[in-house]
């Protein structure tokens, strides 16, 4: 029996190394297969070490792992549930996919184990930043974008999230979001109530690092030369209004919201009187609107022109995610004839 245990332990070690290698090579299919083997081997080990006395034990035995830490494999399962590209429409109703994951409040032993494993450095993968998340990254970004009302960079989305909607979102988590959304749209168009899509440049290509919401009108999803500034000022107004409205924001001078507004106010002429002290939201709104008035007309015209062009030249997918700069022809053929 000892020999068999030794063999099994060796096999478990090999499989673990294999899973790590596959994950490093991003070969998820192999990793999944290996993980299944790994679990089988672990069950066999459990069965053997307990002398096959309790057939129900193997499932719970995860909490008492054999040598080494088996829990390291679970965060990937969590991550798979969170990441959107698994199947079209799977996350159509936000939060649904996570319904099965126990969340804070009533921490069962599994949740605690999942949370602990998620925090293990390097074990949880990119998305496993804590198992106690109520809303998907996608939904979090959507809320922040809806608050801002204009296309925004991940960094700003994360800052807004932190200031008003409860933190937990990092800009880096949004990097692959747009690509995942595009893939999901490609496999089943309009399968979700909204998509986080790209803002389009004057060349109808996706603007770098900007996220937008597909339910917004096309004009709002275009970026003209003046738009970055207009977006910035609009965001400042939105943030200041939210602060003035006092939506769950503490007025502490060093709260996230105040810091965000102070940073924005500094870059608006007349927005901040002094460098120190909390900014006055009313003043920021006034200053931002004053500068907006200078740019608004030309920017609106530019974006309307661009939106017309986008409507004339791009298919459904292109209008949401932009024409690829290199393989435009192939993509257009794939998305069908351009709508008029």
């Amino acid at each position: 029996m000892g020999d068999r245990l030794d063999d099994l332990e060796r096999r478990i070690d090999e499989l673990r190394a294999g899973v790590r290698r596959a994950m490093r090579a991003r070969d998820t299919a192999t990793a999944r297969g290996l993980r299944a083997d790994l679990r089988a081997a672990e069950r066999a080990w459990d069965a053997l070490v307990t002398g096959g006395l309790d057939p129900a034990l193997p499932n719970d035995a995860r909490a008492v792992p054999p040598p080494g830490d088996v829990r390291a494999v679970f965060p990937h399962d969590n991550a798979r549930a969170v990441s959107p590209p698994e199947g079209p429409g799977r996350l159509a109703i936000p939060g649904e996919a996570l319904g099965g994951v126990p969340v804070g409040g009533a921490p069962s032993s599994t949740a605690a184990a999942g949370g602990a494993a998620g925090r293990q450095p390097g074990a949880g993968g990119r998305r496993g930043g804590g198992g106690l998340r109520l809303v998907t990254v996608r939904e979090q970004a959507h809320q922040a974008l809806t608050l801002l009302g204009v296309p925004a960079q991940p960094r700003l989305i994360a800052a807004v999230r932190e200031a008003f909607l409860g933190g937990g979102l990092r800009g880096a988590q949004l990097t692959s979001l747009r690509r995942d959304e595009e893939r999901s749209f490609a496999s089943s168009p309009y399968g979700r109530p909204y998509y986080l899509c790209a803002a389009l440049t004057d060349r109808l290509s996706p603007a770098r690092g900007l996220l937008a919401v597909s339910t917004w009108p096309q004009e709002l999803r275009m970026v003209g030369p003046l738009s970055p500034r207009v977006h910035f000022l609009t965001c400042a107004v939105a943030v200041a209004e939210r602060m003035a409205g006092g939506h769950g924001v503490d007025a502490e001078p060093d709260s996230g919201a105040a810091r965000l507004l102070a940073r924005m106010a500094r870059n608006i002429p007349g927005g901040a009187v002094l460098d120190i002290g909390p900014p006055d939201p009313a003043r920021v709104i006034e200053a931002a609107r004053a500068e907006l008035a200078v740019h608004a007309e030309r920017d609106t015209r530019d974006r309307a022109d661009l939106a017309r062009r986008a409507a004339a030249q791009l298919g459904d997918r292109g209008r949401l995610f932009g024409a690829a700069t290199l393989s435009t022809i192939g993509d257009r053929a794939a998305t069908g004839p351009p709508a008029t």
């Binding site: 960079q153 960094r155 700003l156 770098r208 030369p225 003046l226 500034r229 977006h231 870059n267």
Partner: peptide, 26 residues
């Protein structure tokens, strides 16, 4: 960040860039 917001403020300070001049090309 934010369409070169910080940079615009500084350019307005050191180069006296007019407020209307904000067009940004990436």
């Amino acid at each position: 960040a934010d369409g070169c917001a910080e940079l615009l403020r500084m350019l307005r300070e050191v180069l006296e860039l007019p407020v209307a001049e904000v067009a940004y090309h990436d």
